[in-house]
Computed example of a mutant assay.
Amino acid sequence: MSFFNNKVVVVTGGSDGIGKALVDALLQQGAKVATCARNLDKLYELGKTHAGKALFTSATDVSNENECKLFLEDVVKTYGTVDILINNAGISMRALFTDTSLDTMHKVMDINFWGTVYCTKYALPYILKQKGTVAAVSSIAGFRGLPGRTGYSASKFAMNGFMEALRTELLETGVNVMWVCPGFTASNIRNAALTKDGTPQGASPLDEGSLMTAEECATHILHAIEKRKRTLIFSSGDKRTVLFNKFIPALTDKFVRKFFFKNGELIK
């Protein structure tokens, strides 16, 4: 029997990409799943795909505290509790800081960081009773600042710090707090990434077909949750980046600059 069988699992941002892959996998393993997203059409299609299964969906903007509160209240009304929260909802950006509007920076922080804080705040009382798990989908950008992603890196650094502090606070409660860093994964996040004026860039600068699939990513995340890991950094390259940044940060600056720039222009 699956570890997730009959567990109530909340996945934010479950209508697309990694979030959708998590919802699909969890339902296959017998979980009772609740998910939220802003796109009603995608939520409707998700519901149709899993008709008859234990899936609760809600049109929710995680950057809005009250909407997060109402979403979690509805989840508890539907399923009675929360065993696991996966803070997956997020948005990226791609623009140099000198060109980026502060509204764009605020939007990225509101969704990525505050969305995690809001949902965790309202799910935690139930997770404490269940001795369950709070997880967050972070990024290597939360360990190493990435050019063209100042707001995104700031939000993920904040997320990692929040999760680490919370983990330490809850260390003797039976609750596991963890964060995972998938690296580049095939999804819509780069198409939806915000440009300098806050509009979606609409196209990915990467070869999406060569990246890890969302389904493979979801498998790794669920395995880490089952094993109650602390952190999970997926690729060997990302692990090297974290290690290099810790011990040779000045040289790592040059490596990262070379990866993201060509002839003085941001290319990734």
Rank of each mutant, 00 (worst) to 15 (best):
L124Y: 04
L124E: 03
P125N: 08
P125C: 06
I127P: 01
I127S: 01
L128I: 13
Q130R: 10
Q130A: 15
Q130V: 14
G132C: 10
T133E: 07
T133A: 07
A136G: 05
V137E: 03
V137F: 08
V137Q: 01
V137N: 04
V137R: 00
V137M: 06
S138W: 06
I140A: 08
I140F: 00
A141S: 06
A141Q: 04
A141T: 12
G142R: 05
G142C: 11
G142F: 09
F143R: 12
F143L: 14
F143N: 08
G145E: 09
L146N: 08
L146E: 09
P147F: 13
G148C: 11
G148P: 11
G148Q: 11
G151W: 09
G151E: 12
Y152R: 10
Y152E: 09
Y152M: 10
A154M: 15
A154H: 11
A154E: 08
K156G: 09
F157Q: 00
A158H: 04
A158D: 07
A158V: 14
M159V: 13
M159F: 11
M159R: 09
G161F: 04
F162L: 14
M163F: 09
R167E: 07
E169K: 06
E169T: 08
E169H: 05
E169R: 04
L170D: 00
L171T: 15
L171G: 08
E172L: 15
E172N: 12
T173G: 02
V175W: 00
N176Y: 08
V177F: 01
V177M: 03
W179I: 15
C181W: 02
P182Y: 01
P182L: 07
G183N: 00
T185I: 15
A186M: 04
A186T: 04
S187W: 01
S187K: 00
N188P: 05
I189N: 00
R190Q: 14
R190D: 09
N191Q: 07
N191H: 08
N191D: 10
N191L: 15
A192F: 05
A192K: 13
A193T: 05
A193R: 06
A193I: 10
L194F: 10
L194K: 02
L194C: 07
T195H: 05
T195R: 14
T195W: 07
G198T: 12
P200N: 03
P200M: 11
P200E: 11
P200H: 07
P200K: 13
Q201D: 07
G202P: 07
A203E: 13
A203V: 15
S204N: 15
S204A: 08
L206K: 01
L206G: 02
L206N: 06
L206E: 06
D207M: 12
D207Q: 13
E208C: 09
E208G: 02
E208I: 12
G209R: 01
G209V: 15
M212F: 03
M212H: 00
T213V: 04
A214W: 02
A214C: 03
A214E: 00
E215N: 06
E215G: 01
